[in-house]
Computed example of a mutant assay.
Amino acid sequence: MNQSFLYTALSLTAYSPPGALNYVFFVLCLLLYGATLCANVLLIVLILLDPNLHKPMYTLLLHLALNGIIGSCAVCPKVMENLLSSAPFMSYGGCLLQVLCINVYATCAYAILAVMAYDRYISICKPLRYHTIVTPARVKALLATVYLVPVALLSVQVYLTSRLPLCRFAINKLFCDNLAVVKLSCVRSVLINVYGLFITFSLVLVPFACVLLSYMNILYVSLKASKDSQRKALGTCAPHLIIFINFSSSILFSVLYNRNSSVSLLGNFLNSTLFVLVPPLFHPLVYGMRTKEIRRSLHKTVHAASCLIASLRPGVNSVTCLTH
């Protein structure tokens, strides 16, 4: 591919000329983006600093939060910039990079959720063998697979897309997606369509099947257990189930919506918000509200920070404060 072609400008026609509606969307996007970053960074810091959270489930949650930051950063800054621009555009190379980052965000999140379901399955169905099965080495191997496989497969997809000749240079979207870029081409590639189906099967359907099988086994074991065990299983799985259903719904809505080439600025904004901002913001909030260990860690951190601030005042003993 010609290197200079990567700098070809693509027009993003979904944006309206700068006006009141754009400013409203800009403020909403800025607030949601800021809240997403703060919530996920806070969750990552809590997990890193609290030894009680150095467990496989929270390690996976940390990577889910990190992945959410990657997804939101791949879209929101450019969207906010274009909302205030009179001529929204993106270079072809930047568009392809954004496609890669967004797809990696979506597929890695799905893979992490599948590994989390496997962790819950072992925890509930094989509790006595949990520490021998879910070892730190195995968690690291699973996380390496979660990242390396999607990045490798999706890089090939973006490369194949980049080889297509362009005869159009306008995308009616707020940000780039692979289907929109492929539609800019003068030709139709059977290889790209087949490879797209392979990507969908391997990076979406396989993780979905893993989650489904894990919860079928959890349900089967739980139905034979006592009421107290059923309540504990539900409490353990509820945050993950809520997040998985929310993320799957967002993915499905986004895929169906992206099939429509004629959409309004409001529709595009709702789609992008639902896809790259709501799930990453929703994940730490759900786990923060429904997980005792994270709530306890957050309380300890806030209390320690309050004591540190108070200790800067004359006559306050920080040691006494921390012991209460």
Rank of each mutant, 00 (worst) to 15 (best):
A106N: 05
C108A: 08
A109T: 11
A111C: 14
I112N: 00
I112H: 01
A114F: 13
A114V: 09
V115I: 14
V115F: 03
Y118F: 15
Y118V: 10
D119W: 12
R120D: 06
R120C: 02
I122Q: 14
S123V: 10
I124A: 12
I124Y: 01
I124F: 08
C125L: 07
K126A: 13
K126P: 09
P127N: 08
L128M: 14
R129A: 11
R129L: 14
Y130T: 04
H131D: 15
T135M: 05
P136G: 09
R138Q: 06
V139S: 04
V139R: 02
A141S: 07
L142R: 04
L142F: 06
L143F: 01
L143M: 00
A144E: 10
A144I: 03
T145I: 12
Y147A: 04
L148N: 12
V149P: 00
V149H: 03
P150E: 04
V151S: 03
A152T: 09
L153I: 12
S155F: 03
V156F: 13
V156E: 12
Q157T: 07
V158D: 00
V158Q: 05
V158T: 00
V158H: 03
Y159L: 07
T161M: 01
S162V: 02
S162C: 01
R163K: 14
P165I: 03
R168W: 05
R168Q: 11
F169T: 07
F169W: 09
F169P: 11
A170D: 14
A170I: 09
I171H: 06
I171L: 15
N172K: 13
N172E: 15
K173G: 14
L174K: 01
F175V: 01
C176S: 11
D177K: 08
N178W: 03
N178G: 11
N178F: 01
L179M: 12
V181R: 05
V181M: 07
K183W: 08
L184H: 01
C186G: 12
V187L: 11
V187P: 01
R188E: 15
S189K: 06
V190M: 11
V190S: 15
V190G: 08
V190W: 06
L191Q: 10
I192S: 11
I192M: 05
N193M: 13
V194M: 11
V194W: 07
G196N: 02
L197A: 13
F198G: 13
I199C: 01
T200Y: 15
F201K: 04
F201M: 12
F201L: 11
F201C: 12
S202D: 05
L203R: 03
V204F: 15
V204E: 08
P207S: 05
P207Y: 05
P207F: 08
F208C: 04
A209P: 04
A209K: 08
C210S: 12
C210F: 10
V211Y: 06
V211S: 10
L213F: 06
S214D: 10
S214V: 02
Y215C: 03
M216L: 09
M216T: 04
N217M: 09
N217A: 06
I218C: 00
L219W: 14
V221R: 13
K224C: 13
A225K: 13
D228I: 12
D228N: 15
Q230W: 07
Q230P: 02
K232W: 10
A233V: 09
L234S: 13
A238I: 10
F244C: 10
I245L: 15
I245W: 07
N246A: 12
N246H: 14
S248D: 00
